[in-house]
Nucleic acid binder design. Structure first.
Lengths: 346, 346
DNA sequence: ATTAGCATTCTAGAGCTCCGAGTGCTAAGC
DNA sequence: GCTTAGCACTCGGAGCTCTAGAATGCTAAT
């Protein structure tokens, strides 16, 4: 618990130093080490006193008596809060990002490459989600007969996402065209959610007086041609191999990887923590509340938007011992780039 | 090297027993253990003699002097060869597979679920590839204006694969429709390869007398609307987390996971070893020739076909210490199911 | 051709010691 | 009154030795 008060200037400085040292080395940090690197020449003893206070306040933990101190979640939160955020990305990183994202005009492809680039730059797990959910605005649909009893449904959202699905349905192409025209004419620009609701309402109401057109539409609707559920989300997870270098034991590592394989959970995770309204990069420390296997892991993410439309989110997941400054800068940089690139190509 | 000769009945039996014991336990197997489980009551000493012969012939290896023997790649090859293949899948496994694949009519979705189900059943890595390459026959294309200077190209192959791409292009919808009609009318049923070649030829030849239509077609072609390169392959890799339980050290594990993340290499691997013409399940032992990080790993795969058309491949990758019989049966079962399900839904 | 017996080899693991890092406390110093 | 030096104490980890057990290969007997 952040028993807030006991954080004065000196405490702040020492806590920061501890966090940074621990992030750099991974070993519990002791008063000696700290005294050496501290610019005001404080003695180990003094530092010990401060450390004891910080430990009481819940910012530090001790693996065992004769070891140094390790930052608690609270400490990381505090540390992140007091980061200025003024840092900028190295030329090299900017280069990597730009090379990798150059010339992409497709949201999905952008997402895919971004997850890779995030993992490359952060040396952790890069994740992107392209929302395909109910909030998306419909651009248009397209149906096409495929073989004998199959129909291909293609759905394009305003955000440029393309989703397709093969349905078991036996309708002539003419009917499909009519249905597509109907939907496109009536619902272009609607959110998927609203469209589905309205469509359901109409189908219900006019049930008695169905004409051929509405019958086709109903069939398509029932078969899920208007893809809008969470399966429509596209998730890219890259760099899981980076987790191997961490200090977890086998057991934990496996659980971790398993979790990352469950795309659904990942979507939920990002959904729960990344508020679409927020502007900036968000850091969530203590992921174990949502996902037990993610104990000691943090999420650093931001919404991916073009203008005011939220297209999805991008994030890095890594151990609490991550380079916050660098990762935050990278995430923020790419988020801005996303807006810029996709905006100008509109 | 398989100095072929010294494999008589007794040798065969002992070699098989060694392989099976090693697969079951993971420990080098010694003459004692073997003598105990051997049904004809051979003494350890006799077995030792046989084992020495087998070692000379290259079928067994010794980690160190006072340890038991471990099967060599050659031994596994031999072992697999003499498997009857008569085994059938447990009801339970059949249930898992059917539940998971039930009602799927979309090749891509089938592939996706299959990779998952393969990893589940084999407790190893399940991989599927949907070929989108030059050999695929075109079903139809569809172009649609998207925003101001973008065009969405959707390409459907005979095999039911849907590929889309966003192009930077500024053509009116009418022109796009005309181009699509032209391509569909002229090239439906052609392989992507043939179509591209013919199109290139025509564009070259008639360069002087271009009309509006051919100009649109050329632009679309140049922008890559007729997706047929290897990026059109879709790869699904599931169950990488299963590798953690193996006995590799961290270093190897990480390399392994990295390799699995490189979809391109995986496609090449399957391509190199899984011959489209082959009917049955194929087992490749010694993957390190192709991928150094895959030392001690094997590939158990089969082509995924519907009738005579190859849609891709499915495979399991796991350590040499994999349950061959079970995995082979599972792969073969799913391959047959693939044909059956997608055939009847045509 | 098998097998029993035996000397030999080699590893994994248990037990042990010792070193170093770190702590908290107390008493002295500025 | 804050800071620091000094000191006794704690504890984990590295390194060492030693042993038990599992295998082996060979030889000689059956």
């Amino acid at each position: 618990m952040p028993s807030g008060p006991p954080i004065g200037e000196r405490e702040r400085e020492i806590l920061t130093a501890i966090v940074e040292t621990f992030i750099a080395t991974g070993d519990p940090v002791g008063s000696r080490t700290l005294a050496r690197s501290n610019r005001e020449g404080l003695s180990p003893a003094t530092i010990r006193n401060v450390m004891a206070d910080l430990a009481d306040a819940g910012y530090l933990e001790q693996p065992h008596t004769s070891a140094g101190r390790v930052p608690s979640s609270e400490a990381y939160r505090y540390y992140v809060e007091q980061l200025t955020g003024r840092a900028s990305l190295s030329q090299e990183d900017q280069g990597i990002i730009k090379d990798s994202l150059h010339g992409v005009s497709d949201v999905q492809e952008f997402m895919e490459r971004t997850s890779r680039v995030l993992s490359l730059i952060s040396h952790n797990v890069g994740i992107t989600v392209a929302v395909g959910g109910p909030k998306n605005a419909l651009e248009h649909v397209y149906f096409s007969r495929l073989g004998d009893q199959k129909v291909l449904a293609v759905l394009v959202t305003r955000s440029g996402l393309v989703r397709d699905r093969v349905l078991r349905l036996d309708l002539p192409q003419a009917d499909l065209d009519a249905a597509a025209r109907f939907i496109n004419d009536n619902f272009r620009g609607w959110t998927m959610e609203a469209m589905r609701a309205e469509l359901a309402r109409r189908l219900e109401q006019e049930r008695s007086e169905y004409d051929r057109l509405m019958k086709s539409v109903e069939q398509l609707y029932r078969q899920g041609a208007l893809i809008a559920d969470e399966t429509a989300q596209v998730v890219f997870v890259e760099g899981a191999s980076n987790l191997v270098t961490g200090e977890q034991d086998r057991q934990r590592l496996q659980e971790l990887l398993q979790t990352l394989e469950e795309k659904k959970k990942i979507v939920e995770l990002l959904g729960a923590y990344l508020d679409a309204k927020q502007e900036a990069v968000r850091v969530v420390i203590g992921l174990d509340e949502a996902l037990p296997s993610m104990r000691n892991f943090v999420l650093i993410g931001a919404p991916a938007r073009v203008g005011d439309d939220v297209m999805g989110s991008l994030a890095v997941i890594g151990p609490t011992r991550i380079d916050y400054q660098h990762t935050m800068t990278a995430v923020s940089y790419i988020a801005r780039l996303f807006d810029k690139i996709l905006n100008e190509s509109e």
